[in-house]
Design a protein around this nucleic acid. Structure first.
Lengths: 100, 100
DNA sequence: TTGGTATATCGGGAAAAGTCGATATATTTG
DNA sequence: CAAATATATCGACTTTTCCCGATATACCAA
């Protein structure tokens, strides 16, 4: 089982918070609207500002969440936009019911 | 959110394996039958033998799983029997659907 | 009570994760 | 091309986790 990376990704308060924020981007990242809208997600800088962590830490955390499948990245120009992949949450919920 | 302890508990291969083993005690711990049956669960020694870890490590891991709610302990004489608490898995599955 | 068995707890060394600042890379703009 | 901006990666340090051996505790049996 390599689900371990999934659970590790969820074993951190800041990362859990980012996932929660990304459920409602319009509410949690209002500045993103001026920026580029929400079609592709929210860019790293917005998340960093809200998380109160350094840029490098936020970048790495987003990458951990992405590798675990919870978010998707889309590069547009100099920005990387992240948004939730709801399917991953569904899949995890089912996996816990049937495989754990 | 103090769900973090839950996810940390699941972030270890040996602990995940123990949970899996305890889904089918009769199959995974056949010696337990000679011992005391399966009503109360499986005792630490059986799990240790199968896990290939030291007694202290197994004892601690079981305690971590218990604190996270995934298993229950019952002391009978000099043995402690552990068994799954299926409700915790159900609850986690639902939590992921609605709160994550 | 003495010894034997099962489990829990304690202390520690090694590995992994958390987090930072500095630097590298990519992209846009002048 | 050079400068500016956004993000990613690197190196280091601290904290946490992993896992062990040794010791303590609980219970049982003679």
């Amino acid at each position: 089982m390599e689900n371990i990376e999934i659970f590790k990704a969820l074993s951190n308060k800041s990362r859990l918070q980012m996932l929660e924020w990304l459920k409602e981007p319009e509410i949690n990242f209002p500045d993103q609207l001026q920026h580029a809208g929400f079609e592709h997600g929210v860019c790293v800088g917005q998340i960093q500002a809200k998380a109160g962590l350094t840029q490098s830490t936020v970048s790495e955390y987003l990458s951990i969440l992405q590798r675990a499948g919870f978010i998707e990245a889309k590069r547009v120009g100099q920005w990387t936009y992240y948004k939730r992949n709801e399917g991953a949450f569904e899949a995890l919920s089912k996996l816990i019911q049937s495989n754990l």
